[in-house]
Design a binder for these strands. Sequence first.
DNA 1: TCAACTCCTTTCATTAATCAAGTAAAAACG
DNA 2: CGTTTTTACTTGATTAATGAAAGGAGTTGA
Lengths: 136, 136
Amino acid sequence: MLDPTDIRILDELSKNSRITMKELGEKVHLTGQATSARVAKLEDSGIIEGYTIKINQIKLGYVVHAMISIFTKSTHHEPYLSFIKTQEPYVINNYKIGGDSCYLLECKFPSNEVLDAFLVRLNKYVNYKLSIIISK
Amino acid sequence: MLDPTDIRILDELSKNSRITMKELGEKVHLTGQATSARVAKLEDSGIIEGYTIKINQIKLGYVVHAMISIFTKSTHHEPYLSFIKTQEPYVINNYKIGGDSCYLLECKFPSNEVLDAFLVRLNKYVNYKLSIIISK
DNA sequence: TCAACTCCTTTCATTAATCAAGTAAAAACG
DNA sequence: CGTTTTTACTTGATTAATGAAAGGAGTTGA
């Protein structure tokens, strides 16, 4: 399915997805055309899901990064799920998990005040346990 | 610092970082050259940290996605930290957190057997609480 | 008012991406 | 075992994007 050249391509694209096909080809000892064809295959197969950027959230003003364990009060999760859909920019990921809690909610906030206000709203739907990310 | 056009550029690049500057320029009503200059500024300021790809880990064989809360046994975290450095492909992120546990370790595994073996090794350094991610 | 600066456009030379053909090796098949 | 098909690549020609330079409009501040 994937040969070492494909792995190498994925690795290089992870490091810099805006690299030219010509340059990427030089790294894997192929022409730009052959490299481009391999990348197209990786896209078609769904292994490459998309191309994106890493954004420095702190420089954008999001200085608080939190992981919130969610404990739903009832068996109806819909109110919670539709609530967090309305909470974009703050919500990064909502993982459904097996273990202690029901969900693990990854969020970012510009300040503790905004986090506090978010938690007040959140608490109408679920109970939670807050963890603040100090570093990565 | 950032005007609406910059926000739009970040948004479009998040969705597709391989878009051409010309095409991106059309979306924000600028020429390719002007767009390119803005993107270069966003890079220089550190707001854009890099260009990367989203990889489908399941198609790469990593079917188990786990969040592991880490409770260090002693105040010396170095043995744990150097251990996880040796555990690449499995470790995705290691967050230092404030809250109940010391770290939150995000990992991926090809099978429960590999996860199990990892936990046995991990337990030499720390105690843990395992959560399996069911969906996102 | 004028100089300096920012931000953009236009133009043009360079470079990369794309498309079409052609080739060689491996795989599939009678 | 030979033939056909497929796969993966290269080369070459065309099209498109990029990068550099020059210039114009609007803004800031002495």
